[in-house]
């Protein structure tokens, strides 16, 4: 009986692996729902890595399994295998292919990183007064070196995500200051003096979060937005996103910040524009403007700062009591 020629097997396996990988890349179901425009881009990157990864995984594990079965020692056979010590073309091949793959992946990931605003963070002023006095009209290479001028020295550098290159100078529709503290997130809306324990944003708006930390490092993460940025004492960081799906999503602290790190969770509420306006107007009406002007938040202890708002913010009173005991 004649054997099926090896190239035919290789072709069949290649087609099967490709189809399976492409299918799995679209149907892995590993990610939570997408709620921001940035999430769409990052998921496309992830899906393509899943396709590549699945194909490589199947080929490698298949080869290992095939070796284990086909090349096992047969009973009574104490001889050695063939004395093959290498094969230069083959070795060159399996060095070159991964090199091309990772460079391609690197370029693609750079493209996604640019589109989510990764290479132009902080072009919009952070605080009133301390503007970033840098020319913003420099093209990409200049933009890179400008930010690289010495982030460890420059006091005004902002790290994180800004707007993508093509509209890097556009101001965000909404700016919210985010403060991380053990073990809560405080959201301050500069327009209207709103302070809240939950983040409210309108759908479709270009939102910029100016992130800071009061005590230790925290990390602001919304899994449904696929975005994360550390809140670092003494550093300014920022995230910029456009929410594209109404709903409530968790805000999670991702950097170990102490014993109750795991309970440092709140939520972001993506409203329709009308609902957001209603919420905004209601909160502006509620806010006792005098109180916030009377004392700068920085001069208050965490407990003093929080207690007037604890009810509206949905922050647990016990947690604040715990904080003051420490």
């Amino acid at each position: 009986m004649k054997q099926i020629p090896a190239p035919l097997w290789t072709l069949t396996i290649g087609v099967a692996v490709t189809l399976l990988s492409l299918w799995y890349g679209q149907n892995h179901g590993l990610m939570p729902e997408q709620a921001s425009e940035q999430a769409v881009l990052i998921d496309e990157l992830f899906d393509s890595m899943v396709v590549m990864g699945t194909a490589l995984f199947l080929v490698m594990e298949g080869a290992i399994l095939y070796c284990m079965i086909q090349f096992r020692q047969r009973k009574g056979d104490e001889t050695d295998g063939p004395a093959i010590e290498g094969n230069l073309p083959l070795e060159a091949f399996w060095t070159a292919i991964p090199t091309i793959l990772v460079i391609g992946l690197g370029l693609y990931s750079f493209q996604v990183f640019q589109e989510i605003g990764g290479i132009t963070p902080g072009h919009v002023a952070h605080d009133h007064g301390t503007m970033i006095a840098q020319a913003d009209d420099t093209p990409l290479p200049g933009g890179l070196s400008e930010s690289g001028k010495g982030p460890l020295i420059a006091e005004n550098s902002v790290f994180g995500l800004g707007a993508p290159l093509e509209n890097e100078d556009t101001a965000a529709d909404l700016q919210v200051n985010v403060t991380g503290m053990q073990y809560a997130w405080i959201f301050t809306y500069p327009e209207g003096n709103i302070i809240d324990g939950e983040l409210h944003v309108p759908i479709g708006a270009d939102v910029q979060l100016n992130i800071s930390a009061k005590d230790v490092i925290h990390s602001f993460w919304v899994p449904q937005f696929r975005l994360k940025q550390d809140a670092i004492p003494g550093k300014k960081t920022a995230l910029r996103f456009i929410a594209n799906k109404e709903g409530n999503y968790p805000v999670v602290c991702a950097e170990l910040c102490g014993g109750y790190h795991g309970s440092m969770r709140t939520q972001v509420i993506v409203h329709s524009p009308e609902d957001y306006q209603a919420w905004h107007d209601k909160r502006v009406a509620q806010t006792p403007a005098v109180e916030t002007i009377a004392k700068a938040p920085a001069d208050l202890s965490a407990e003093e700062y929080l207690s007037p708002y604890s009810q509206e913010m949905g922050v647990n009173r016990d947690l604040i009591a715990n904080l003051s005991l420490k």
Binding site: I119, P121, S157, D230, I232
Partner: peptide, 9 residues
């Protein structure tokens, strides 16, 4: 996700 500039990332 820390305080690192774009070129480093």
């Amino acid at each position: 996700t820390s305080g690192t500039p774009p070129w480093m990332r």
